[in-house]
């Protein structure tokens, strides 16, 4: 009985995780510029990964594998914003400017450093 409930829960979590992973990938393909693509990649890194890891944790019961999966989850939780920020900051420092506003005009980086104007 519990086995079956766990299996169903795992299936739901896996389906949800796969859905968010696919949505994130589609978003990375569809969005118009680098800065907006970052947000789509964020969907994959956070909810998609967490749901899949949670599904795997449900299937292992409690063992060393569970602890390892939790460790992977924690590690992703800490590193994914860091690497996203690193990419964004590198692009910003190199003078890449986002498209802004409803009509997606190239931004002038008014909030940015004084020297960066090229896009």
């Amino acid at each position: 009985m519990i086995e079956m409930v766990l299996d169903i829960a795992t299936g739901v979590l896996l389906a949800g995780g796969s859905f968010f992973l696919l949505v994130g990938s589609i978003g990375v393909l569809r969005l118009p510029d680098f800065y907006s693509r970052m947000h789509a990649a964020g969907v994959t890194d956070t909810l998609g990964a967490e749901l899949i890891l949670l599904a795997m944790i449900l299937q292992t019961g409690f063992s060393l594998i569970t602890v390892k999966l939790i460790a992977i989850g924690f590690f992703m939780f800490f590193t994914s914003p860091t690497s996203t920020h690193a990419v964004a900051n590198a692009a910003w420092a190199a003078g890449v400017r986002p498209l802004l506003g409803k009509d997606l005009k190239p931004g002038d980086g008014e909030a940015g450093p004084k020297d960066g104007a090229a896009s």
Partner: peptide
């Protein structure tokens, strides 16, 4: 800054003096 980045839709791009520059989708 990491919390801003971790929530999808907003990413901290840079710091400018005291302030964070945040890009929102």
């Amino acid at each position: 800054a990491n919390s801003i980045t971790l929530t999808p839709g907003t990413v901290t791009v840079d710091t400018d003096g005291d302030a964070f520059i945040v890009h929102a989708v």
